[in-house]
Design a protein around this nucleic acid. Sequence first.
DNA 1: CGGTACATTGAGAGATATCAACAGGCGTGG
DNA 2: CCACGCCTGTTGATATCTCTCAATGTACCG
Lengths: 238, 238
Amino acid sequence: MKISLVAVEPNEQQPCVDCSVRQFSLCAALDRAELRELEHLGRHVHFATCETVFAQEEMTTSFYNLLEGVMRLYKLLPDGRRQIVGFALPGDFLGMTASARHSFSADAIGPVTICRFSRAAFARFIEDKAHLLRRINELAVRELSQAQDHMVLLGRRSAEEKVATFLIGWRDRLGRLSGPAKTVPLPMSRQDIADYLGLTIETVSRTFTKLERDRVIDILPGSISLLDPARVEALAAA
Amino acid sequence: MKISLVAVEPNEQQPCVDCSVRQFSLCAALDRAELRELEHLGRHVHFATCETVFAQEEMTTSFYNLLEGVMRLYKLLPDGRRQIVGFALPGDFLGMTASARHSFSADAIGPVTICRFSRAAFARFIEDKAHLLRRINELAVRELSQAQDHMVLLGRRSAEEKVATFLIGWRDRLGRLSGPAKTVPLPMSRQDIADYLGLTIETVSRTFTKLERDRVIDILPGSISLLDPARVEALAAA
DNA sequence: CGGTACATTGAGAGATATCAACAGGCGTGG
DNA sequence: CCACGCCTGTTGATATCTCTCAATGTACCG
């Protein structure tokens, strides 16, 4: 939870039209004129591994569009217990909140690049753009649906099902960005996975090991290879 | 899960302006002219106890504004395990979904009155109304935030904390509608509570009993009285 | 090469689930 | 009006999954 020396790039940023995550992001709903307008509002910012982009209870000052890297989004209980409510990937939009304060923290897993918008300016920008508001709705509703899926996982699934579901879900999300692959990179730590699945780090580790013994997966440094994707999918569906 | 004989009211419905849940609902964002327009789109519908309003995987045909009663919203796993993702109260808006099918089921806990809108007509109605879209956003984001809170509960809290958090949360929601009270009506069954908290019915029952033995609550038929609200709140905050 | 952080493994404890019995309320029907 | 059955909720005994605590192993980095 280091505080970032905010590294703003020199003003010659890549134009929005060429943005690598545009079609995955909010901005997919914008036309060329709007993109050019938006260009003046966004600033690219870098964060190093484990830096906190914003923290629970902090005032919300910005919206964020993740360009590169992975982030963990989490809530802390007063006694330190942590629940990761999601991982953010390029294209994900952060900072929507009902209140004036962030309801969760977000920090970088590995180096991260973010397109940051001043809250007020962005609010003014979208204010009367119905097509953009509909797009934001779509994203919010999709996230809500994912959250509900995750509730089922947390409330009703066994450790093995949790781990399998996580692997499949993560593989599919990465697949949507970079195409399908049998080897699933896991940039986050075992502790992160545990806090995402409502387990302890030991249970996550044991479950991986069990799946490996069963010849279902192969544990590699920084990734997992799905030897028998169908088996993993079956566990995840069950 | 009976199928409802849809009981449409005679066409003289109460006008939207006089709607009892208007200020809590989506419609709070509408002016008088828009309300009159909306009046033609909504139909009041009644459902009896345990009737299903819509089911997971069903095509979405309508939006729903809950007027009276309580509903349970839940997802089922193939083997029948159930996770209740939320309870709906008057003013709650249902039917927003990213896909063309419902991602969860909704049925009535006790008699329910709903204001139903045809999906297409409602979509047309909101299409260009930025203020209404912003209001929908606000509702969606608030729900997402609640969902994240619930993830923390499901993933990281003990049975006792879960039950206490549920009691406080439910009390506060009811309080917002009908003013504060020390006795919290629980229209849902123990099984519903269990499926909401990711517990079994027995654990819920035992936890209630324990809290009663500790003189923290009083178990009444159909409700719980908070003898020591501060203790319950402390458990919920922990 | 040593140190540190992260991951794995093992043994044992504990919380919650499971299985089973019982109690109470309510509606039905005699 | 009472008896019966059914449904919901409570309680008890036991099982089991996951957690906790502790040790060991491994990779990365100065």
